[in-house]
Simulated scan of single mutants.
Amino acid sequence: MSSFRPERVGEQILKETSLLLLERIKDPRVAAVTLTGVKVSRDISLARIYFTLADPDERKEAETGLKSAAPFIRRELSQIMRLRFMPEIRFQFDESVSKGQRIDELLRQVQGDLHDSE
């Protein structure tokens, strides 16, 4: 078995799930969701799909909407991808985007403090 298979499956899951969210899922709770990545377990039994939102206040609603859409997404992916075993789909909020924004903010503060001290 190729060690790159989980990555290839993850890329395909991300692509197809993005299309499903855009074209087939009409739930307004997931309209503002942006998918940021997928991690597939080594045995391809679990796919964690990471997402982010422009407005973090809508996180709980989006998580609820994605959780209710997960069985539909898994069923559609199994028909599209034709894998022997379709991984379980779990959605997880991507904290890295907000952490990156916080780091940028702190760096700007430090840079401002350096200019002020000169």
Rank of each mutant, 00 (worst) to 15 (best):
A69L: 06
V110P: 09
A31L: 09
I80Y: 04
Q92Y: 05
T36W: 00
D55G: 05
E95V: 10
Q12M: 14
V97H: 04
T64P: 00
L53Q: 02
A47V: 03
L106G: 12
H115Q: 15
R90A: 13
F85R: 15
S45V: 00
L14C: 03
Q79A: 11
V30H: 00
V30G: 01
I49Q: 03
E11H: 11
D43R: 03
F72C: 06
L66E: 01
Y50D: 07
Q12I: 02
F85C: 10
R48W: 07
P56D: 08
L14M: 06
S18A: 14
K15T: 14
L83T: 06
V40N: 02
S3F: 12
E61H: 07
F91T: 01
A31Q: 13
Q111P: 09
K26H: 15
E76L: 03
L46S: 01
T36L: 00
S3V: 14
E11R: 13
D43A: 09
P6T: 04
I25E: 07
A47E: 01
Q12S: 15
P87F: 05
T64D: 14
D116Y: 12
E7N: 12
S3C: 01
Q79D: 13
D27A: 07
D43C: 08
L35V: 12
M1G: 15
I80Q: 14
L66N: 00
F4L: 14
E16S: 11
R24V: 00
F51L: 04
I73E: 03
S41Y: 03
I49H: 02
V97N: 03
S96D: 10
V110L: 14
D104V: 05
D57K: 12
R108V: 14
G100A: 15
P71Y: 05
A62V: 04
I44Q: 13
R24M: 08
P87M: 08
R84P: 13
K39L: 09
Y50M: 11
R29G: 10
T36S: 06
I73V: 11
L20K: 01
T17F: 02
M1C: 06
K99T: 11
E63D: 08
P6R: 07
Q79K: 15
E95D: 15
R24Y: 06
A69N: 05
I25W: 06
I13Y: 00
V40P: 04
Q109Y: 10
E105M: 12
E76W: 02
L106Y: 08
G112V: 10
R82E: 10
R42P: 10
T17W: 01
S2A: 13
V38N: 03
L35H: 08
Q111W: 03
